[in-house]
Design a protein around this nucleic acid. Sequence first.
DNA 1: ATATATACATACATTCTTGTTTGTATATAA
DNA 2: TTATATACAAACAAGAATGTATGTATATAT
Lengths: 206, 206
Amino acid sequence: MVRKSKEDAELTRKRIITAAREVFLSRGVSRTTLEHIATQANVTRGAIYWHFKNKTEIFHAIREQVLLPLIDRMDDSLTLDGNEDPLTQIEKSLCQTIDELNDNIEMRETYEIIMIKCEYVEDFSEVLQQILDNCSSILDKLVLGYQRAQAQNLLSCTLSPLALAQDTHLFFSGLLHMWVKDADGSRFRNQAKTLIQSHMNLRRKH
Amino acid sequence: MVRKSKEDAELTRKRIITAAREVFLSRGVSRTTLEHIATQANVTRGAIYWHFKNKTEIFHAIREQVLLPLIDRMDDSLTLDGNEDPLTQIEKSLCQTIDELNDNIEMRETYEIIMIKCEYVEDFSEVLQQILDNCSSILDKLVLGYQRAQAQNLLSCTLSPLALAQDTHLFFSGLLHMWVKDADGSRFRNQAKTLIQSHMNLRRKH
DNA sequence: ATATATACATACATTCTTGTTTGTATATAA
DNA sequence: TTATATACAAACAAGAATGTATGTATATAT
């Protein structure tokens, strides 16, 4: 049998994406061949070429599958003003992302691939720009949070909301990178939340 | 003519390293072949195989050429207690690294390769451990600085020196990553020092 | 019921890479 | 001065990896 129903086809597509994520993770993006992915997915390269133009397109599919939902959640948790104070809100939002990394295998693997199993050249260099754009949008949300904190007189210092947001953003970028690299968890993964708490306490009045 | 003097041979070795750095930067480590490097260095693969076992060894040579001196300088500027106060000392040390990245082409290119043009799998996964070890040593130096700052009652908050050092370390890691990704300089490179200043001001009393 | 497009598998041709082997001119040591 | 090791260049062999072309069974539309 060859021809599958539409649902079956969509299923193979997803199998290919999952397989690619697994192989990318263990072999790195550049070193994995379409044959590797095909074997892992129990299909032939024919199937892959049917669903995707090339390896780069699979990479983008993996990214979208995980990143698009994440951005939405990040947006929500930083924009919605609940009944928490702004600083707690920021803290919870950061912690929530760490929780996601811990709980969501696909997200964790995707992050790991993006950060340390991929070379940003040629086709992939545009991803860098996307990452920077992404950062800008997160930064904007943080600025809003700190502005509200300032308005409510919650801040321990006179730094501008922008400066605080930039500092938090860089802190969190560093944390994510270290989180990924710290495979055994001893240095960063296990104490990520404590680090976030300290970071936020530094800007809390009193 | 084929056989060169020892000095000439050492010179070709360096030419190969420089060529490799340049090609790694533009094509990524995985996608560059030894032929690429040879062409760039105006030698044949024979010369490369004479001086290095394989591509991985060239990568390590590039890393050592830049990283070993850096670690020494970092050690010095954080360990030596000059006549500055500890917080200023930390700030200057961080700024100095940024200056180095701006001024030293080899260092800048090497950092870029290590951070976004290299996949940490197989032979390269051990580099991750080295990076983490490196971080530990920098963290230790920062802790010492903050301990002295605390002893001199310079700190604005009650956070432990360790917590402050971890926060600074993560901030600086994030900054370096963004510095590298921000090729056009608009978002991070041009204001790196301001960001460092803000970061340190956050912990200064007064 | 039949035609057609779909969802692949299989086979093929071509190009890249790598590692090794062989050759060789010449510094250098003895 | 001669022998030997050095510092490469050039040639060779073999295997990967890619993209495409072709084959084909079967959903699905008509």
